[in-house]
């Protein structure tokens, strides 16, 4: 028997596997396919104050071992999420869920976090200061230490739920930004969001993505993500949730060896809807193979 339980900001989860925001909707598409209660938890689609349609299509591009997305935070708005999505989710998911929050101003982050934080189902608030797909919001907060800290402080003020700040890899000094968030009261850090990327269709000589650029993710980004998780875990004392290209139980273990307390899985869910189920089920085997009895042994292996 191996122990897959981990602690995430004071909440024990059965295993460290967490579908990442934007790749798991509000859960029930997957609940039709398997019992999603086998997951540690999952992070739901980035939610904003107002409903958003997002960017024009094409929003998706194929890349070698990955993809670009420029969805642009399409979501029904916090009110609808509370009134419709969460009650629907409650029927199929009985664990605390991670609420992913986005905004275009410090006030909006706080507004959405306050409302969603009051919901009993919500176990953590993941504050996305790193979306590359919207102008004048998202990533601009995550590429500046002061702005990231300001958002963190504002959200911490309005909720008792653990606040995990999700950082952008599109920066030169990730440790400094993570440290600024920790100093501002963040309970955890998650990373990486997508890398800003682009493709051009040679037949039309035009960008594939209507919005020209988008967020690159998938297996190809794993080494970059792992490196940034490692740097961040050494810079802060709060838990770090690692993600970026994870698609196997071995990838989960590697992320945890780099210092992650838990691991999110994004794009892999899109190409294999059973990806997270397979990873959860495969984790004990992979742990045994590498002589790991308890995932907590791994944390912080340097």
């Amino acid at each position: 028997m191996v122990n897959t339980e981990v602690d995430l900001c004071g909440v024990t989860i059965d295993n460290p596997v967490i579908p990442a925001s934007g790749t798991f909707g509000y859960g029930y598409e997957f609940a039709e396919l398997y019992d999603i209660n086998i997951l540690g938890t999952f992070s739901f689609k980035g939610t904003t104050k107002e409903p958003r349609f997002g960017n024009p299509t094409p929003r998706i591009a194929e890349c070698t071992a990955g993809m670009i997305n420029a969805v642009g935070l399409q979501n029904p708005g916090v009110q609808m999420v509370i009134e419709e999505e969460l009650p629907r989710l409650k029927k199929v998911f009985h664990k605390p869920v991670m609420a992913n929050v986005s905004g275009f101003s410090v006030g909006e982050y706080a507004y959405v976090s306050e409302l969603i934080g009051r919901e009993e189902q919500v176990g953590w608030i993941e504050v996305n200061v790193s979306c590359p797909n919207v102008h004048g919001g998202g990533m601009s907060f995550g590429t500046d230490s002061k702005a990231a800290a300001e958002v963190t402080r504002a959200v911490k003020k309005v909720t008792d739920k653990p606040v995990i700040v999700k950082l952008s890899p599109n920066v030169t000094d990730i440790a400094a930004i993570a440290k600024a968030c920790e100093d501002a009261g963040a309970d955890g850090i998650s990373l990486i969001n997508t890398l800003l990327g682009m493709r051009i269709d040679l037949k039309t000589k035009k960008p594939v993505i209507a919005n020209v650029m988008g967020g690159f993710s998938g297996p190809a980004v794993f080494p970059v993500a792992l490196r940034m998780v490692y740097q961040t875990a050494r810079a802060v004392k709060i838990p770090v949730v690692g993600m970026g290209g994870v698609s196997s139980a071995e990838d989960v273990l590697e992320m945890m060896a780099a210092g992650a307390a838990a691991v999110e899985v994004g794009a892999a869910n899109l190409t294999d809807p059973f990806a997270c189920k397979k990873i959860v089920e495969d984790l004990p085997r992979a742990m045994a193979k590498y002589g790991i009895k308890d995932l907590n042994e791994l944390k912080g292996v340097r």
Partner: peptide
């Protein structure tokens, strides 16, 4: 037709605006 990320409703990659909303 739209370019698709998942094909089963999870990623919002293929959204269009209709008279009945997104």
């Amino acid at each position: 037709e739209e370019r698709m990320g998942c094909g089963f409703g999870a990623c919002m990659g293929c959204s269009i605006m209709t008279k009945g909303g997104a």
